[in-house]
């Protein structure tokens, strides 16, 4: 298959990359752009480890073709934190609450959680559990993940961060 050249904005940077038409976005991000923070746990859209934002909306990047991202904006977990020293509140909360074990689901969990909080800054526990139902974790039983997300509710900072990141401005 002949490669196609696509141009996309990744974490605020314009990137140009030649991709085969069947290459998925997660493969393009990981193998071509070396953004390996996004994980592939299944390749069939079941585990959510590959969650990124496409034009601000969370998607499974394993179900998205790289060519679909042409001319669009992608935010990965590497682009969620506002800076190299400052983390997104959800990331801080995951650390403080022990929500990270093996860490393989974590990038997707963090992205889904931040997206939820930017949509629904006052999310309650059922809506957090519902929002994370597409992200599988095998280590934590989700308990501390849910606690971490709920800890961000009401601190005010999360919605703004989430929205900024979701729009690809972070």
């Amino acid at each position: 298959m002949e490669p196609r050249t696509i141009t996309l904005t990744v974490n605020g940077d314009r990137r140009c990359v030649a991709v085969r038409p069947n290459l998925t976005l997660v493969e393009a991000l990981r193998d071509e752009l070396h953004l390996t923070g996004t994980k592939q746990g299944c390749g069939t859209g079941d585990c959510g480890a590959c969650t990124v934002y496409l034009d601000g909306r969370p998607v499974n990047s394993c179900l998205t073709l790289a060519v679909e991202a042409d001319g669009r904006s992608v935010t990965t977990v590497e682009g969620l934190a506002p800076s190299g020293t400052e983390l997104h509140p959800v990331q801080e909360a995951f650390i403080a609450h022990g929500a990270v074990q093996c860490g393989y689901c974590t990038p997707g969990m963090v992205m889904s959680s931040a997206a939820l909080l930017s949509r629904e800054p006052a999310a309650d526990e059922p809506s957090v559990r519902h929002a994370l139902a597409g992200n599988l974790c095998r280590c934590t039983g989700y308990t501390k993940i849910v606690e971490a997300v709920l800890a961000c509710v009401g601190d005010g900072s999360c919605g703004a961060h989430g929205a900024a990141a979701a729009e690809g401005k972070a």
Binding site: H34, G37, E78, G98, G103, T106
Partner: peptide
Amino acid sequence: QRLPRPDARAKVTGAAIYTDDIQ
């Protein structure tokens, strides 16, 4: 003590390196 994990920061930012991440 309820100490948080030193590797958690790398894992929440996507910086932790797993085998498939290496090229």
